[in-house]
Design a binder for these strands. Structure first.
Lengths: 338, 338
DNA sequence: TTGAAAGCGCTACCAC
DNA sequence: GTGGTAGCGCTTTCAA
């Protein structure tokens, strides 16, 4: 069990001062006109003993950790994990590390997590915010830490965020179903007031209204996928007239597929299906499922670049940036009658 | 932009010493016989100003961070993300935080990541090790940090690890195919020397040998899922006689399903299929795919508990613990002819 | 019962 | 060009 080596040991060993070593290590040798041979001697030695400065101590001193906290709803959801990986890759190139966690969309857990991150002095945050977290975000902002919201925003507070055009996407997807001859189109969503869900709902409503069709919205109280399946199953039994369903999220659609499969409902003949959020399963399912695909790498790219630019300048713009990226409708077999 | 409050501010404000505040905050008031009213006064004030000790400073001082580094192959793989979430939940209850990352099974990246974690002074590691990382793990162990390997182990070094019984699982799965009348069973795996892959291969080989059947192993050079699909496709064209495939990992199976679907091969009539690692897709695919399911929560539980027990005792056992958990064969429709 | 002070490893200001 | 040293916020020993 070797003891960790410190800058002190280096300095002592080489017979120079700590300051000199520190400058050399931080690339300020030129600026400080430290002789090349000394620089080389120090660097060689550092290499030899495999010395790594303690980022703990450095952070304590500088007040910067080079860590970005990323909080998504569920890291095992392919949509979020794709974003996480993309963000990590870009941040990495700029010398930032990402630590991530899942909020499970629970306000209390998110609050604790924010506390944990702030304790750890992360430099900035990228957050998929649950409802009711406004105050905590506000506090963060006031403490001078940049925050970028993704996937959804908090109407009550002004923040940087990057989202997709949920309303238009839902509008287009609904129209696609209508264009393919479906008339009794249900919108299955979660019982949540999150703005991105409201926007999707509103897109559906507008499309239906524009075409003079009756609206049918089913809100699922999502606890487990099992329960969601039950609720959808009951819904299908009650509403026999429904000839298509637009699912507001991928996991709702998965539950829906199970329910429909159990009932031997044939897609797309008996019932048309479109889902929000693409998923590998949707491509391979038979029939393949049409989806509104969100560009995860674009979202990631915008989010991390926005945050990095905030991190760069000490004096931050007062005006918050709202970025909206377009989705694409991927038409597969579940929404086109043969 | 409020300044962060420190223990110093608290002490000054309340007219007591830093020491006293520190003792109270660390629950040592009793032991130090600090008067109850003082304790209350301090606690109330701390509450009021929402003071949180800097874990950075604390870690610097104590040498402990209460952070565990978790390195999996790919956080967006459902198998790994399930493990990650389970580990996180248990660690959390014991006051430990998890920071995770994806190694992409790349030795160099893993090396860097280990360096990063060690810089951050994580207290312990749970690692899914890529090949060639033996030396780095050894260094970690020598520096006194506990390491638990999961999913696979490194034959060259003695370490705690928790794995599944890959050989037996593969043996049983192969026998299951044989029992269902399949004879020309191919084993599709990745071109890797990782022990868990070798064990799966060996299980397949033994089962085939025991039944006097010819062996056919196809190693895929996995780069992208697209390329994997190509290779499997070519393989299927060449080996027309194959009547069943045992896929060594879930992502190989996904690529395989795409390839077979493109060729209109009917499962399970034309070709039987079993895959290692369960996946939501396999349950919903038609036909549903039989799999060897690994108990992710058991793996997670064993791994984190093992690590926590190492963390507890200052003097560690010399003998390393090797935990093997059983898998379960989930028989669905892809491996049973109607 | 409480307080002073050393020091964890590092950066950066100021001296020489 | 290089070195001394204060101090980031905390824990913990020793003294009072």
């Amino acid at each position: 069990m070797k003891k960790k080596i410190s800058i002190n040991d280096i300095a002592k060993e080489l017979g120079v001062s700590i300051t000199t070593v520190s400058f050399i290590l931080n690339g300020r040798a030129q600026e400080k006109r430290i002789s090349e041979k000394l620089v080389k001697r120090v660097l060689d030695f550092v290499q030899e003993v495999n010395y790594k400065p303690s980022s703990l101590a450095r952070s304590l001193r500088t007040g910067k950790t080079n860590i970005i906290g990323l909080m998504v709803e569920d890291i095992s959801d392919p949509f979020f994990s794709a974003i996480a990986r993309a963000i990590e890759a870009i941040a990495y190139q700029s010398g930032y590390k990402i630590i991530y966690c899942s909020t499970e969309n629970a306000t209390e857990k998110t609050r604790e997590l924010i506390g944990m991150y702030s304790e750890r002095h992360v430099d900035g945050y990228i957050i998929v915010p649950p409802e009711g977290i406004e105050q905590d975000i506000k506090l963060l902002l006031e403490s001078g830490k940049p925050v970028v919201l993704i996937d959804r925003y908090l109407p009550a507070i002004e923040t940087d965020h990057v989202v997709v055009d949920n309303e238009k996407s839902a509008y287009d997807a609904t129209c696609h179903l209508i264009d393919n001859g479906y008339k009794d189109i249900a919108f299955v969503t979660i019982d949540s007031l999150q703005p991105q869900m409201q926007d999707r709902l509103s897109g559906y409503e507008k499309a239906m209204a524009a075409n003079g069709l009756p609206q049918l919205v089913k809100e699922i109280a999502y606890k487990t996928s099992e329960q969601a399946m039950q609720q959808i199953s009951v819904f299908l039994d009650r509403k026999r007239g429904v000839d298509a369903i637009f699912f507001a999220t991928n996991y709702l659609c998965v539950s829906g597929l199970k329910a429909m499969s159990a009932k031997n409902l044939h897609i797309p003949q008996n019932i048309g299906v479109v889902s929000f959020d693409d998923y590998e399963l949707f491509e391979l399912y038979s029939p393949s499922i049409s989806t509104v695909s969100q560009p995860t790498d674009k979202i990631a790219e915008h989010a991390i670049n926005l945050l990095l630019s905030r991190l760069k300048k000490t004096v931050s713009d007062k005006v918050s940036k709202k970025i909206v990226v377009p989705t694409s409708l991927i038409i597969r077999n579940s929404s086109v009658k043969k």
